[in-house]
Design a protein around this nucleic acid. Structure first.
Lengths: 187, 187, 187, 187
DNA sequence: AATGAATGAGCGTTCATTCAT
DNA sequence: CATGAATGAACGCTCATTCAT
């Protein structure tokens, strides 16, 4: 196995555990046991557990953005494509591994002065907002920038609320509600 | 100090620490040190740390509901009272101690099989939805039940999103956005 | 066993190990195993391993000063009492546990920026110089302060050299040599 | 770079680190990082870390003896040349890299049963005594062997004490004191 | 010869909880 | 009812050394 492969193997293993059980509830020992590697091997690839956390967040984010983008690109232009973010979320929710938003869950676990992880999380959300704005502009014509931003922020908040609340209530009603409200935002 | 006073003192102390620094990041030793009590005293009042967690959640919730209720009751009936939930959140956000939603943050820290704490959190949110529905019905006349629920759920999602995202981004724009969108939901 | 007794038990155990095998070569696990206590018990009595190190140094020092003082007080006043410090060292050297100077050995093991331990060690040596000066003044009459200091410093250096070199060469000739030279310093 | 050059490069690098920060506080990784070589390269040149330690000690010793010899050879014959060892030490002490005696510091770090390193250190000190005796005989005429040894051992102890104590107290007074006492030893 | 990823054993430290007093 | 010393398990991390390439 090549260096980068074992690195990816660690990230995959840790990601599953972090996402399923939480960052602090997942110990290094659990990761190496599941990955089948020695402790020092892990530390040859990552300086600290926090570094693995960053890699985990990036891993989840890039997969998520790719999947979301390809999902909605297959939808017909217009309202359906725009509301596709909620349909995507429905599918995401149905996955047995669904456990809410890794950003929200991780930020709840780390001390407030952990700027590195906080920054990563904030940047991911900013990227999501940026992506949503693209989708808004692609699917609603003749919007002023202010209008586009208003709709984008609304959809973003609804999306985030739907992720968190479907996870919290273990039910998909928040996703349907969010889609309904989202539909009202589109002129 | 009476038995119940000590209990409340422990809850107050633990709540401040849990909310500020997180549940897992706050140790029993820190709590007893700040409360100025002996370790066994704490365990005479609470069976486990998880029990303190439940008490912490209840404590935050009842204070929150009371404050929210009294805040919006002072607002004039109608749209202003309904949107008052977002104005309340603005004030909540401005408090130096603001640190997001205790439910969301706590659920991220506990193992998935901890039903006791999960139930407490779910019930709190259900109570919030119930309360919001009351406010909706009080301030918008002649709503069918379905209409009331639709608006309630929308406001709830926007509120939850605004709490979480203002905390995540360390900025109050999500609260303003949520209020804007919320205003569109009210006929 | 009372709190202070178990504390002293830890100090005794750790002291034997630190002095025999070195500070860094002695692990916490070795200490608790030999002391027959749990790891957390040790950490209830000492904040860090460095704190145990300080206690070890203080323990060795106070025993040493007491033993040295009582040893030379039994010697007749004059040259014999003054040179008694080297006779004391001979006996010290003969003990099977003799392993050189804990100060010199410890300072060699700790990072240069560990001021707490460095200060303790420097203070111990200053106390030794102070004690030696007392003995000099007690046993040589009509010395100016400068003369007393000169003799004191000479004896101190010879003593320290004798401790270190007898340990290094595993032989007592440095003690005899130091005594010989020391004798020449006394008018 | 030739084989022997790499070896010397490793020794130089390791020596600086060992002397500055201690043997146990310097890791193999630190050495190879600073030397800019691969880990296995280091182990092609040295069987174990202890072997590097031996090479480090030899390196320091031979440099030291050469520098000391050439320093005092430039002094005029007689008392000045003999006491030149302390003047040399003054200059040694003034170097920013001064960190006491590598022998004393290393012997404090290794287990008592490490005969290889202990022997190297003892031999270095025996060589120093031998060298000092040469200097004594060169600069004081008509000494019996016993007289020469007595003076040599005295100077040696004073020298060793001065090195260790100047390092411990971070002050040069022990060097001045040692020189003063040394002067009294010379007839 | 040179590489650098992998290792197992150990490090110092923290944790929620128990129990004799 | 209040105490606080003691606990065992787990924590994140470092080490000198080996070995397939």
């Amino acid at each position: 196995m090549k260096h980068s492969e074992i690195r990816q193997h660690i990230i995959n293993t840790a990601s599953d555990l972090f996402y399923a059980n939480g960052y602090n509830n997942t110990g290094i020992n659990e990761i190496i046991a599941k990955a089948g590697i020695a402790k020092a091997t892990l530390y040859n690839h990552f300086r600290t557990k926090d570094d693995i956390c960053i890699a985990y967040l990036k891993h989840k984010h890039s997969n998520f953005i790719l999947a979301l983008r390809s999902y909605i690109e297959e939808k017909p232009k217009g309202r359906l494509q725009l509301l596709g973010i909620f349909d995507f979320l429905k599918e995401f929710y149905r996955e047995p591994s669904f456990n809410g938003c890794w950003c929200i869950r991780t930020i709840a676990e780390i001390p407030g002065d952990n700027v590195e992880i906080r920054n990563e999380i904030q940047n991911q959300k900013k990227e999501l907002v940026f992506f949503l704005k693209e989708v808004v502009n692609d699917n609603i014509k003749n919007l002023s920038n202010a209008e586009a931003e208003k709709i984008t922020n609304g959809l973003y908040l609804l999306y985030e609320g739907a992720v968190g609340e479907s996870h919290l209530h273990q039910s998909d009603w928040p996703i349907y509600s969010a889609r309904d409200v989202g539909a009202q935002l589109i002129p």
